[in-house]
Simulated scan of single mutants.
Amino acid sequence: MVVSHFLKWIHTARVSERAAAASALARAYINAELPFEDRCAAEAALTLLLDDASSKVRLAIAEALSMSPRVSMAVAAAIAEIGEPEACAALLANSGADIASLSFRRIAERHGHLPSLREALISDARLPADCRHMLLIKLGETLKGSPLVLALMGRARTERVMRDACVKASLTLIEGTRQEEHAALIEHLRLRGDLTASFIIRTIAHGKVDFFGSALVALSQQSEQRVRALLAGGHDVALQALLRSAGLAAATHAIILRALKVWREVANGKRLAGVQEVSWLMLKELGGQSAEGDLAGLVKSIHLDALRENARGHALAIAAA
């Protein structure tokens, strides 16, 4: 075998010879259709050459391999785990790289605080939803600690504004998340302590019924098929039992059921409604504008945000006409 002779030869070869041979072997490895045994032997030889005493040999391998866009999942994992920010940025910029979801998470965990890496991650369509949420939180934490922001708004108001902004960004994130990714995003939110009753109420108020259902599956430990069936046409008694099993307080059931009924009618083409109308009907379940308490305050804030958003949209439409 050629590789076996090569391994014996490198012990006596000069640096320039080893570098040239290492470059040729690396090019053959990425360009040639080697039999399985020869490919394994070539990998072993290249791995051995990574420990060569001369940097010229190592550089020759790096230059040869850098010409190939076919970065394997294992190589991507190694870069994500120990690579410097520059290496991770180059990996993300490589459209031929096979990057696992776990590797995206490790890059986000290790370098998500850096604006350039954060931007590269968010712009990558392959980025899992839970990683996007993690980066949103990191951005909020960065802004929250900014001396300029603190000076302008004060710590208490900064905390509140950033918390609200992260919640709204999370709702927007759900829109672009495929249903098969819901479970991962929900688990991420749960582990962070963000999968709260108020967040779940916001999701149903905003019509994120699929995500709401996925959250109920995770919290109630009931089958997805049963939860979907109940949301699509279940009676109030059965739905209330589902909400209880998910740990949602009885005080929240009426407004959730009201919102769900409206979104059902919208989905069936029987009604036109948006967040503004749904949140107003939820508030009426609590007694209208005169209602007090934390739950009423939450629904009022959802309704007020919807009013503002609709007003902005209407103003922009008028300006564009």
Rank of each mutant, 00 (worst) to 15 (best):
V2D: 14
V3P: 00
F6T: 02
K8L: 00
T12R: 10
T12C: 10
A19Y: 09
L25I: 14
A28E: 10
D38A: 04
A41G: 03
A42D: 00
A44Y: 14
L49H: 02
A53L: 13
S54Y: 08
K56I: 10
V57A: 01
R58T: 03
A78M: 03
C88A: 07
L92E: 06
S95L: 09
G96D: 05
D98P: 01
S103N: 07
H111P: 02
L117C: 00
R118Y: 11
P128E: 06
C131P: 04
H133I: 08
I137H: 13
L143W: 08
A151P: 10
A151M: 13
M153S: 14
G154F: 09
M162Y: 03
K168R: 15
A183M: 12
E187P: 00
L191Y: 11
S198W: 09
S198H: 15
F199T: 08
T203R: 04
K208R: 15
K208P: 06
S214T: 05
L219K: 12
S223K: 01
Q225R: 08
R226I: 15
L230D: 01
V237H: 08
L242A: 07
L243K: 05
A251E: 14
V266T: 04
G274P: 04
E277R: 15
L281S: 07
N310S: 07
